[in-house]
Design a protein around this nucleic acid. Structure first.
Lengths: 253, 253
DNA sequence: CAGTGGTCTAGACCACTCG
DNA sequence: GAGTGGTCTAGACCACTGG
């Protein structure tokens, strides 16, 4: 091509594009504003649509953009800080936590979870589904695994499933002494069911927080919470809502 | 087309492919084993290479695969648990921590970091670069920002840069009273410099851990550490090396 | 050097949203 | 139905690794 290309390091087009777009986002767009559509942007920058999309994907991954099929691409607000923190040395389901129990089922947990329990009574595990919302939007979906042996006094009165049952399980859990917990964070991609709860497509990047709850020297419950990686910043410690993320955000229009 | 397509939910090809590959990984491959190359795999599954790559990307994101240009695609070992935890209520650079200081520079920090400090003496900020290695591989690259005002007794004897200087800054920092710290985790993509340290391509997904250090009621230092998201599981709390992640991993061949 | 994954193109069709 | 992003194809060339 006849362009004046003196660069010794052939930076990928999509990478350069991402940088350019990122700067444009800082200076020319307000939060919530809709960008031109992909075909138009691609034409404007003289690249194929796939290349343009590669740049947009990165920006979405970094929480700068939000894309919705049938709607368009909008400038995302800064990530919200959600506390996963140590201030909450409590059982899940304690009054006032940010979660809402939506369902419950009984069955064998997935292998990766089963491995975290002592191998006993693994067929009888209550699986509580909970949703966490902040500022009106769902930010996380959780599966809480509680072996039946951890809540021996759980009555069989109500149905084995449904939100009422979920709350019963949580209530029983809270009667135990919480000796400690153990947390890990890793990157994952949303399973179909989680994706639905989080209003994302399957495969969307999520932060998976695995928590083990200890009591009586045993692992009595395991929580696997998947947070939207695009919109969330997980905070640990004292202050939960400090402004980090990128710069130059002007507020909504 | 004339295919027998009865599926009511047209699952994307790459998603289905990912599932199939994932199961094959569990049953037919050992950690470290090399997969057939992309062109061959694509042909074998009857899809375009781009589609196959979409599936591989997902699996790499989930830490199941490792791809290296010029080499091939290998089955990744389970993620290593790296402790970012609370057991370490200490200044960075305390003897025995997992980090190695490699360099130091002076200058204004990026805007997003500057915002975390009280607006004072922001032109004079020491930036210490450190690397964290576990089991022989680099897992994280960090930039530690220390305003000159936080370390007033730092002598001007040695050069303003280099590893020796970095250690001096850390030493001065440790003389302060650490009142508390504050941590946040979010998803990001590796900048070019970090990518190089981590032996990844620019844009690779990383877990960004931002830590603020408090002393005398002020923020005296900020650390921005980027961990390889494909190979790391960040652990908080007591035990740091428990087996989570997926199942069926057979060990090296 | 041959073989690998990484980038890029120019198209096509599909699934979804909204007026 | 018009317009959006999501998926998919069949090619091409490039950058890197290793023998």
């Amino acid at each position: 091509m006849g362009t004046t290309q003196l660069e010794t390091v052939p930076e990928p087009k999509y990478w350069h594009l991402k940088t350019v777009l990122s700067e444009a986002l800082d200076s020319d767009f307000a939060v919530g504003e809709i960008l031109p559509n992909e075909r138009e942007l691609a034409a404007r920058f003289g690249v194929a649509r796939a290349t343009l999309r590669q740049a947009l994907e990165q920006l979405e991954l970094e929480g700068r953009l939000q894309r919705r099929r049938g709607v368009g691409t909008t400038v995302a607000p800064p990530r919200v800080g959600v506390s996963v923190g140590t201030e909450q040395h409590d059982w899940p389901g304690t009054a006032g936590d940010a979660w809402q129990a939506v369902d419950c089922a009984v069955g064998a947990p997935p292998l990766a979870v089963a491995r975290l329990f002592d191998a006993e009574a693994l067929d009888e595990v209550h699986t509580v589904r909970r949703i966490r919302t902040t500022h009106g939007q769902s930010v996380a979906a959780e599966l809480l695994y509680v072996p039946a042996s951890s809540v021996p006094d759980l009555t069989a009165i109500d149905a084995p499933s449904g939100p009422a049952r979920a709350r019963s399980v949580l209530r029983e859990l809270q009667r135990l002494d919480l000796e400690g917990q153990d947390r890990a964070v890793e990157l994952g991609s949303a399973r179909a069911d989680d994706a639905k709860e989080l209003d994302r497509l399957p495969g969307a990047p999520v932060l998976v927080v695995t928590t083990r709850y200890f009591s009586l020297g045993r692992t009595v419950a395991v929580s696997v919470a998947t947070y939207r990686a695009d919109t969330c910043r997980l905070t640990f410690g004292d202050s939960g809502d400090v402004q980090i993320s990128h710069d130059g955000h002007r507020q909504a229009s």
